[in-house]
Simulated scan of single mutants.
Amino acid sequence: MNIDDILDVAKIIPVLEVSSLEKATPLAKALARGGMQVVEVTLRTPCALEVVAAMRSAAPELIVGVGTICKPSDVVAAIDAGAAFLVSPGASETLLGELAASGAPSMPGVATASESIAAFEAGFKAQKFFPAELAGGVSYLKALAGPLPDVRFCPTGGVSAARALDYLALPNVACVGGSWVATKQLIAESAWVVIEDNARTAVDLQSASRFSGRPQ
């Protein structure tokens, strides 16, 4: 499965920060029950890599990727943990090279046209636009569509349920990443019913983006 295959599976990807390994199994099951197919576990906690393995075991139907890839050693560790894809918040020349050499489906992070061109030249047509809202949001991505027609973006950072459809209406947006589906607080509180409901809302938004007449 390549990165395009993964992005075609889901239009909304929950971005997860999990501080306790014991939360991994019920979290995975709640997201899966809600209809989520693709999730991103961020490397922001000491147990993140163990969480990846636990989520994959608890809900094999989930495609579990790893985010906050910031250095070459993160690439190796994430792949060893079973990550289905890799996501970085930004990308140096060294990190782009490591991602490319790994052969793993990857989305390097960009925030400017120059960074996007550099990532494209390194072989990455799918890119994370981060932090989306602070970096210019919908209007900025709309402006990039003309000069960079071959790049597919996954805007992440400040993207709410209310804003998701605005991003998904853009022809150069493949999907959006959002922490609102399962926030750090909801996970810490074991609010699995709420998370499941949020997942269902995300699935409904995905359907709306495909069938409401909005361009894809």
Rank of each mutant, 00 (worst) to 15 (best):
G109M: 00
A145W: 09
I6A: 06
G90C: 07
V51F: 01
V15Y: 04
W192L: 04
K29Q: 13
F85Y: 12
G157F: 02
G97H: 08
D74W: 04
A91F: 02
A101S: 15
F153L: 03
G103Q: 04
A161F: 15
L170I: 10
E22M: 07
K184M: 09
V159K: 08
L31M: 10
P89T: 02
S116H: 00
S212I: 04
T25F: 12
A10H: 11
R56Y: 05
T45H: 10
S139R: 12
P105A: 12
K184F: 05
A24P: 06
S73E: 14
Y140I: 04
A100C: 07
V9K: 09
K128I: 03
A113S: 05
V41H: 03
D197T: 13
F124C: 04
E61M: 07
T42F: 13
V194I: 13
L144V: 01
V194A: 13
R200V: 06
D5Y: 08
T45V: 14
G97E: 03
G178K: 12
L95V: 00
G103H: 03
D74H: 11
A53E: 11
R56I: 07
G109C: 03
F120E: 04
F124Q: 03
A145N: 10
R44Q: 01
Q216M: 13
L21N: 07
I195S: 09
Q206V: 05
L168Q: 13
I79R: 09
V15H: 09
A164I: 03
P171W: 09
I79H: 01
L95Q: 00
L168W: 14
V51M: 08
V52T: 06
A24E: 08
V18S: 08
A113E: 00
K29F: 00
V18P: 05
V159I: 09
V110T: 02
F129G: 00
V15Q: 02
P26N: 07
K71N: 11
A24T: 05
P46H: 07
V138E: 13
S57N: 12
F130E: 00
D5W: 11
V64W: 07
D5T: 15
E50W: 02
M36V: 13
A191L: 07
N172W: 01
G90F: 06
G137E: 09
C47D: 12
V151E: 01
V76W: 10
L141V: 01
K184G: 01
M107V: 06
E50A: 15
E115Q: 11
F129P: 00
A122W: 07
S207M: 15
V151M: 06
E133K: 02
W192P: 08
R163C: 12
P147W: 00
L141P: 08
P14R: 11
V38M: 11
I13N: 06
I69V: 14
E17D: 14
A59Y: 10
K125Y: 15
L144K: 01
I117C: 03
D166A: 09
A162E: 15
N198T: 12
A30S: 09
F129M: 00
V194G: 07
L27T: 13
A58L: 03
F85N: 01
Q206A: 11
S139A: 15
G137W: 02
V194W: 04
A202R: 15
A169T: 15
G82Y: 05
A77F: 01
V75E: 02
V193P: 05
W180N: 03
V41A: 03
T42R: 15
A169E: 13
P46V: 14
K142P: 03
